[in-house]
Each structure stands twice: as C-alpha cells, then as structure tokens.
Design a protein around this nucleic acid. Structure first.
Lengths: 128, 128
DNA sequence: TGTTGACTTCAAGTGCACTCGAAGGTGTAT
DNA sequence: ATACACCTTCGAGTGCACTTGAAGTCAACA
C-alpha cells in the first residue's frame, strides 16, 4: 500500500534526493515512517507530489509551493488564499504558454528559412 | 543608427549586465566600438539578440546558444548543423508547450474545484 | 560471515545564469 | 568646477534547485 522512497521516486519521476529535499523544505507534510524510520509514501502523498510537479514544472518556485503547502496543512480557512494563488498561477502559466507559442512561431520561421537555404545549396551543388 | 548598450538593453528587454555577459561568453560576435571603447549595437546585432531571446526563453542553455552562435560565425558550411539544432530545439519546444498545456489543464481543474468549494462555503455561511 | 543494497541524517558542493561591486574614464548640465 | 549619468573592465557574489558525499543502520542473500 505505502511506497518506499525509491518507489515514490519512480512513480513521480523525481529523484529520491529531491523527495527528501522536498520533505525537509516543508513541501510535504510529515511522512509516516516504518519501524526502522524509513519514509512511507501513501497514495495521498503521491497525489500531492503529482500536483507539486504540476506547479514546479509550470515554473512555480519551491518557496511558493512551500507557502501553498503550508496553507493547505493549516486547514480549510486558508482556502480563499489558496484559490487566489492558484488563479494567479493559472494566469501566469497561460501567459507563459502564449509567449512560448509566439517564440515557437519565430523558431519555426527560422527553421523553414534554413531548410530552404540548405535545399537551394544542394540543388546548386547538383548542377555542378 | 547604432545603439548604446543601454538602448540595446531597452530594446531587447535584457539588462546591460546580461548584454556584456553574453558578449563575453561568445554569444555575440565582436561588437563595434566607438572612439572611447563603448559598445555599439547595430541593427543586425539587435536581430541576433532577439533571436537569442527566443532560444533562451524557450529553454536553450547559454552554452548551446553559444555553440549555435559559433557555427553561425564560421560561415555557410555550418548551415546543415545549425538547421539540425533548430529542428531539434523546435521539437523539444513543441513537446514543452504540450506538457505545459497538460499541466495547465490540471491546474485549471484544481482551480475550478477550489472555486466551487469556496462558493459552497459562502452559501453555507449565508444560511446561518 | 561478509558483502550488497536500500535506507537514514546532516552538511557541503555544484551548475547555471546572471548580478553586483569596485575602480576608473568621459561628456554634458548647472 | 563639480556633480551626474553614462560607459569601461575584472572578479567576486547571489539565488535557486538540486546533488553529492560522508558516515552510519539494517535486512536479505551467497
């Protein structure tokens, strides 16, 4: 049922180092331990880690994820603030995606331009 | 015609520090200087900087931009290699955008979920 | 029995990309 | 004349997010 740190790492795509780092930074609420003190990751911890990945991979700094986590651990009365953070992050991610798309367009243009140039040179080479 | 470093910074959205850093790292070909040794940014330098921004803002590391720059400075015989780099980067950027979009979806879901929860609590509060 | 491998802690190290500070030169405005 | 805003170089410092190392415990396998 509960996973070891290694299994949790495999499931989330994070390293065991990063998982320990996240716990120590306060991004995870105190994990259960077995008799030997080994960390146990329960399904809800995994869900939380997937969500952390979402936030991190869309550019939220660890410190901000930590803040969000602390609010979540405090209970329901922090919901409005958490909602605000999510809405802001959603908007900033949307902007980022738009920006990425416009950069992607420029890169595509340049690529096409290069492709044409390379093709021309090869045709010119054939004629010789 | 040619811009000072400050003006170039304003046009490209980079800082003067970053511009000097880019030159020193070899991302820019030797800039012209005025009588006093001050850098002069010509339109083609600006174009190149815009393109660098494209690459950087889509996640290409400085070292790789540098490699691309060096190829470009070497002349036309490096075109195939440059094309290859651009094609690869284009693909990796496309993947990144797709990933961002899927993360964005999850964040949107979570946001909506929070919005509903907050609304419910407020309605419950009204009844009391 | 010994060695392999997974886990633990704590602290220090790394890599990237800036970012800043010190020390100094020059041109224009008051 | 002196202050201010700009520029220069070189080298060191910063911030973030890991990442690694050292030193140790424990259980299972050959």
């Amino acid at each position: 049922m509960a996973l070891t740190i290694k299994e949790a790492a495999e499931h989330t795509g994070l390293t065991v180092h990063t998982l320990r780092y996240y716990e120590q930074e306060g991004l995870l609420k105190a994990l259960k331990r077995d008799e030997r003190g080994n960390r146990l990751f329960e399904p809800e911890d995994l869900d939380w880690l997937y969500f952390i990945r979402c936030l991190r991979d869309t550019g939220m700094p660890v410190a901000k994820v930590k803040h969000f986590a602390e609010l979540a651990f405090k209970g329901d009365h922090t919901m409005r603030e958490r909602l605000q953070i999510l809405q802001d992050h959603k908007r900033s991610t949307e902007r980022k995606v738009e920006e990425m798309n416009s950069f992607l367009e420029k890169i595509t243009h340049k690529t096409v331009w290069y492709e044409n140039l390379v093709r021309e040179r090869e045709q010119a080479a054939e004629k010789v």
